[in-house]
């Protein structure tokens, strides 16, 4: 038997709101990085979707530049749903959520931590599928890359804010993963519509000022739903 080593107990202060938010974001991201199960299926889905969409249209009738914005946003939406379901699904098998709730952590911090982890997930998928679409559909995006990234990020915050809340609700119901798209997709429409329109304009070489209206809708959606979903999240937990 090895000699027992006595370690002095470590007294650490409980992290504050920001600290616990980041800790939860880090925990979720680490779980995903170590298992890599969902991110790989999301990426495989993205590449398959790019291929299938190309052959779903007659390439001699529809120019690929007209196809690209739609394909991008369909991929972002559905691969995002894959990640969102994982967000709370990962807590289910061992009921790890109960431990999180018992910990001295604000419930709002759990929501925001999950939201940041989901945002990171969605951004990784986008960072790979956006150049892939540009490459395979022969759409040069160099000239308007920063405005396009702005559109994508603004839209992603809105999608993830609503999606994280519905994911929390869906895992507790009998339908589980079937319910998430049913609840979330009607809420995604007012995000995807302006985002896809703005993407199409940028890809067609229009000025950035022409898409500012769409950008302000996206920003307004982000602010309203981030605040309201953070406030409503505690009601989706066991009380």
């Amino acid at each position: 038997m090895p000699p027992s080593t006595r370690v002095a107990p470590v007294h650490r202060r409980a992290p504050g709101f920001v600290g616990s938010t980041l800790a939860i974001a880090r925990k979720d991201t680490l779980i995903e990085l170590r298992s890599r199960s969902v991110i790989l299926s999301a990426l495989a889905f993205a590449v398959l979707a790019i291929t299938i969409f190309f052959f779903a249209w007659d390439p001699t009738a529809v120019a690929s530049i007209d196809l690209a914005p739609g394909v991008l946003w369909v991929i972002f939406t559905f691969s995002g749903l894959l990640g969102l379901h994982r967000s709370f699904g990962v807590e289910q098998p061992t009921r790890a959520m109960d431990a999180l709730l018992a910990a001295p952590v604000d419930r709002e911090a759990i929501y925001l931590g999950k939201l940041i982890a989901n945002l990171a997930f969605v951004i990784v998928v986008q960072a790979i599928s956006l150049p892939a679409v540009a490459l395979l559909y022969n759409v040069p995006i160099g000239g308007y890359m920063w405005p396009l990234i702005g559109v994508v990020l603004l839209a992603s915050v809105g999608l993830v804010a609503v999606g994280t809340l519905f994911s929390s609700m869906a895992v507790s119901t009998r339908l589980a993963e079937l319910l998430l798209p049913l609840l979330a997709l009607p809420f995604f429409v007012p995000v995807i519509l302006p985002a896809a329109q703005a993407t199409a304009r940028l890809m067609n070489g229009r000025a950035v000022s022409e898409v500012s209206g769409y950008l302000s809708i996206l920003a307004a959606f982000d602010v309203v739903f981030l605040v309201v979903c953070t406030l409503l999240y505690p009601y989706t937990l066991e009380q």
Binding site: L165, M169, T173, V224, L232, T236, E238
Partner: peptide
């Protein structure tokens, strides 16, 4: 999809509120 009374009421209230907030955005977009 929910059997528990209290949880069903809470979840549907959350959806009811979010749905009403969505209306101006659908209209705008």
């Amino acid at each position: 999809a929910i059997d528990d009374f209290e949880m069903r009421a809470r979840f549907s209230a959350v959806l009811g509120i979010l749905g009403a907030l969505l209306v101006p955005f659908i209209h705008l977009s």
